[in-house]
Design a protein around this nucleic acid. Structure first.
Lengths: 232, 232
DNA sequence: GCGCCAATTCATCATCTGGTGAAAAATAAT
DNA sequence: ATTATTTTTCACCAGATGATGAATTGGCGC
């Protein structure tokens, strides 16, 4: 099943391995779990599948992470922190560079572009991760806690910045438009392949340049239109 | 050999009558399954849970629907047809009424508003259903087939109408912007409750009027901005 | 060389899973 | 009454699932 990832060299035998060949098994497990959870969701993956994909024993997963749900949380949290750091830095940089003259498109670009860049250059694990977040984002209840704790601070930061860029917009406008934005962004980042079929191959899910060329302008215009209507 | 449907569907002749006279047990099962699948996804629900929720024996589910996956498909398809009919009628009506002078916002409203109306007036099952579709929409691979077969025709219709409303937009623009639109729309319709927490209660997921007041204008402005950029 | 600790595997458990075949219940037609 | 037909229940299976405790092995301080 896993032709893409090289199978572990089958340590053949119990006990502690003779030498850490540089491969951190804990990370390997997280990688496998991430990929599988992204594709089939939490309940669609068994710990045995994760173990098989990672080339380890089932018990090792419990040794490192405890229950299955804790493994999932570990997968989710591993990249969340990196994401937040990157995003905050991007928005800091933009706000500083713009010297107080914020544009909605600029703010939105500073908020989204880090994700696109990471998806392009960060390795395949990130693509799985975004698909995972998109799924959690569209699941009622589920990530409520985790999602909230980890991503809301950055989102509030975005909403504040957009409030300065669009003084006419009410706070309700901003929150709702953010909901629209995050729906578009997550669907685009998760690369479901749906647009490939819909467009008969004209567009490809993996074409992040095409997304970049449109998404920022699209969302910014949306925010501005709603703000303008709110003013009148 | 084991057909998904009973051998002679309701010939109004002989045979044991439905236990709940008047209440169709088949529909009851679909309702329960819909609700559970919407909340926990396909793998997060067991046939036993569905049976318990519907108050029937597990075997009855297999008697009516066959395998679990077929039950899921039945849930998915039941409302898809209604949805498509309603949507096509709405777009027909709009195109006729506008007499060839299409606006992007008008087209988008004709495409989305039926869903909002149904969600408001169609009963709680529809809310579950939208949450379900949103999940499938954000799952890689999974709904590819079903989603494609059932919803793509209406979507193509939307894209064509938008192409007439926005002659400057390339076909790629239209497909990508549709991807953005559907991400926003599905997340809004699935009422995940995330915006309630994010906005500290200021906005409520269930406030469809708030969505209507913003989503059409938001998306239309997005399409127009992308089309305008494509032209220059 | 010894003892301790970390890492890894093995064997196994109790429970749950989707699914089935046969029987029972309930009516209509004969 | 008997039989045909449809719906519902019961009992059960073979395999999967999450999880655990014990066993095994290697490295490191001493």
């Amino acid at each position: 099943m896993n032709a893409a990832t090289p199978k572990k060299p089958r340590a053949s035998g119990r006990g502690r391995p003779s030498k850490h060949a540089g491969l951190d098994l804990k990370e390997t497990i997280l990688d496998s779990a991430e990929q599988l959870f992204a594709r089939h969701g939490f309940y669609g993956v068994t710990t045995r599948q994760v173990a098989a994909e990672a080339g380890v024993d089932t018990a090792l997963i419990h040794y490192y992470f405890g229950a299955k749900r804790e493994l999932f949380d570990a997968v989710f949290l591993r990249r969340a922190e990196i994401l937040n750091r990157e995003r905050l830095a991007s928005m800091d940089a933009y706000e500083k560079a713009s010297g107080g003259a914020l544009t909605s498109e600029g703010v939105i670009e500073a908020f989204i572009d880090p994700l696109l860049r990471i998806s392009e250059t960060g390795g395949p694990g990130w693509k799985s991760y975004f698909a995972l977040v998109a799924q959690v984002n569209n699941t009622p209840g589920w990530g409520g806690d985790t999602m909230h704790r980890f991503f809301d601070p950055v989102v509030r930061r975005l909403v504040d910045a957009l409030g300065r860029a669009l003084p006419n917009a009410s706070r309700g406008d901003l929150f709702w438009c953010y909901e629209f934005l995050t729906g578009s962004m997550m669907l685009a980042l998760s690369e479901t392949g749906r647009i490939d079929a819909l467009s008969d191959g004209l567009c490809r899910s993996s074409d992040l340049a095409a997304i970049r060329a449109r998404l920022f302008a699209y969302c910014a215009a949306g925010f501005e239109a709603v703000a303008a209507r709110s003013k009148g």
